[in-house]
């Protein structure tokens, strides 16, 4: 596997993504919404309920931060759906496969093109979120809540694993659909379990502390490994040329 060859594919796809306003908009809007909107909500809660307990504030802050993991599902799905199904609809996969680039290098390039902007957007949004939350909660909590172990796990283990899983599912789905929107919609199904987890966190059923986040990351990491095998089988040049519909 030559990383430089994969990087040529990724660089090209990143250039294509830059031209897609809807994708760029999603990359900016979701992290910006989470990093600005939720701290505003926390500020409002504290302002409106002066006697609110630390535990309640922390549960809100943790649950809101979980949206950065949900972003790990939503953002790469739309990018990778475009970068693979887009090639399919433009029928540009065959010329690409005819170059001296291995299937693995092409796949890695596509994964990087979806993964890198997603993680940059999530990390940038999370940095703003942490600064604002610290600023808003310092007076009430009496200490800086961020950075902490849970957010490190969320941003550097869970979100990347979730992003990779979303991309893998998108690749698998891409072999069966004819247009980008269908790919995005089907890949978006992955979004639902995360919303359920978010709701569970909000109602204190599944606390999003370090231990639970690590457990979740571990389980999803295993799922991602299994999905990777499916993905490699689907993204095989003979399969693409003869079986992709």
């Amino acid at each position: 596997m030559r990383l430089s060859q994969a990087w040529i594919v990724a660089r090209h796809d990143l250039g294509m993504i830059r031209r897609r306003r809807t994708i760029l908009g999603a990359l900016i809007a979701l992290p910006a919404g989470v990093s600005l909107g939720f701290p505003l909500l926390v500020w409002y809660i504290i302002a409106q309920s002066p006697g609110v307990g630390d535990a309640v504030i922390i549960s809100f802050v943790d649950a809101f931060a979980f949206w950065f993991a949900i972003g790990g599902v939503m953002l790469p799905s739309s990018i990778s759906a475009y970068s693979i199904v887009g090639e399919k609809t433009e029928k540009s996969l065959e010329p690409l496969l005819a170059t001296p680039t291995t299937d693995g290098e092409i796949l890695l390039g596509k994964v990087l093109a979806a993964f890198l902007p997603t993680m940059i957007a999530i990390w940038a949004g999370a940095a703003v979120y942490m600064v604002l939350i610290d600023e808003i909660t310092r007076g009430t909590l009496g200490y800086l809540y961020y950075p902490n172990a849970a957010i490190v796990v969320l941003l550097f283990a869970l979100a990347p694993i979730v992003a990779v899983l979303a991309i893998e599912i998108s690749v698998a789905v891409s072999s069966r659909v004819q247009d980008v929107r269908s790919a995005q919609q089907i890949s978006g199904v992955l979004f639902l379990p995360f919303i359920l987890l978010y709701v569970a966190a909000e109602i204190q059923v599944f606390p999003l502390d370090t231990d639970h986040l690590l457990l979740l990351a571990g389980i999803l990491g295993l799922v991602a490994l299994v999905t990777f095998r499916i993905c490699r089988r689907v993204f095989d040049r003979e399969t693409i040329l003869t079986r992709w519909k």
């Binding site: 029928k91 996969l93 065959e94």
Partner: peptide
Amino acid sequence: ILPENVGLYES
């Protein structure tokens, strides 16, 4: 190779 479908990146 020139495949049957030109497969260019239109944008």
